[in-house]
Design a protein around this nucleic acid. Structure first.
Lengths: 125, 125
DNA sequence: CACTCTAGCAACACATGAAGTTACATGAGA
DNA sequence: TCTCATGTAACTTCATGTGTTGCTAGAGTG
């Protein structure tokens, strides 16, 4: 499948697709080939890869929209608040990763197929 | 304390301070007075207010930097991914709120005083 | 009553980072 | 050698949060 085709399916741009897929390729989840007949192919077992793996392959983008204004500060009030916030955010992020680590691509695949079946058996609007 | 003074302490602008404090005032955590001698005064018990209360008084700003591209979609793959993501994010947010709900301003206050004491007893760089 | 000091608020400007776009190089068939 | 694909850098656009300006209104002071 080419970046071009994927981009259309994702309502985005081929270059954006390549940027994202680049991370997945480095981790061996997909393979790419240049030239005529080239494109992207899956190169992993869906039940061996989790959302957490994907998240990390994508360079673990910032998870929270909130956070400390600055790590180093002279202000003791800010320091106290930072400490409390960091502690919570660290723990919560760990839980997030743990949960993502339990969701395999195979599970998403199965969910997709179930939704597909429902759509063809009258479960439609 | 005036917005002007607070702004200097926070390295920001008086108007930004008023915007933030406005949310706290609506919930009765602080009180403001106009005119000569006016400004902000605390109007709550520090041990009765948690970081969660503050977070919500501030209109519960977006917590996560990631999320679904769109809530409604025709794409069954996107739907499956959204479902998995939302489920995790909802749970994780709940945990975040629970943790913040356990941190009172009084606790931060105490932490601040301890750091202050340390600074005056040789625990300094 | 005029003056000063304060919050309240709307409107605008700026900064940051993510997403999208363009342009060109490289490699692989046909 | 021509076309089709990825790889990548540089640039543009867009969204969002933050900062700024200008003005209104209320409250004390002389």
């Amino acid at each position: 499948m080419t970046s071009e085709v994927l981009a259309r399916a994702l309502n985005t741009n081929p270059v954006v697709v390549r940027r994202l897929m680049g991370g997945l390729r480095e981790h061996g989840y997909v393979h790419s080939e240049k030239g005529h007949g080239g494109g992207w192919t899956l190169s992993c077992q869906l039940d061996q890869v989790t959302l957490r793996d994907i998240y990390e392959a994508l360079d673990a983008p910032r998870l929270f929209a909130i956070g400390n204004r600055s790590e180093e500060t002279e202000c003791l009030v800010e320091e106290a608040v930072n400490h409390a916030m960091s502690s919570v955010l660290t723990d919560v992020k760990a839980q997030f990763l743990a949960r993502f680590g339990q969701i395999t691509l195979a599970a998403l695949h199965a969910d997709f197929h179930q939704k597909l079946a429902e759509r063809f058996s009258g479960g439609l609007t």
